[in-house]
């Protein structure tokens, strides 16, 4: 578990160093995710400590989201102002993507002659 945590902190640090030093607009945890993914690809399997830390940390992810999500209390005005636009944007773009994505996927799969 501890070693697993160290892995995660270190990969996040690598991500952080990369985006800061190169001046990239990418969030450092996401860069860390990409590095860890690359590391796993090279390794070919998931080391035991990472397996452990993931099984503890990932189910708690929603908990870590609450402090920032609760910030919605400060934006009541904005939500009221834009309520209709928000509802329409979410609804329409969702329905259109559900209508389009299956065909898009089947098209690209056929293009590369992969059978589904």
């Amino acid at each position: 578990m501890l070693v697993g945590l160290l892995y995660l902190f270190l990969f996040q640090l690598f991500g952080h160093a990369t985006v800061v030093l190169l001046g990239l607009p990418i969030p450092s945890p996401v860069m860390g995710l990409v590095y860890l993914f690359g590391f796993l690809l090279i390794k070919g399997h998931i080391p035991e400590p990472l397996q452990q830390v993931a099984s503890v940390l990932l189910p708690l992810l929603p908990l870590f989201l609450i402090p920032a999500s609760a910030g919605i209390v400060e934006h009541g005005e904005l939500l009221k102002d834009d309520a209709l636009a928000i509802a329409l944007a979410i609804l329409v773009s969702l329905i259109v993507s559900i209508l389009v994505t299956p065909y898009l996927f089947m098209f690209f799969a056929r293009l590369f002659r992969k059978t589904l």
């Binding site: 990969f11 991500g15 945890p29 995710l33 860890l36 796993l40 990932l58 708690l60 989201l65 402090p67």
Partner: peptide, 25 residues
């Protein structure tokens, strides 16, 4: 509230890095 719950918020980073694990699987 946000300041006194920052400990939890800070874990969002490492937990996001850990998303590489299910992605790999």
């Amino acid at each position: 509230y946000y300041e006194s719950s920052y400990l939890l918020h800070a874990m969002l980073g490492p937990a996001t890095v850990a998303l590489a694990i299910p992605l790999f699987q």
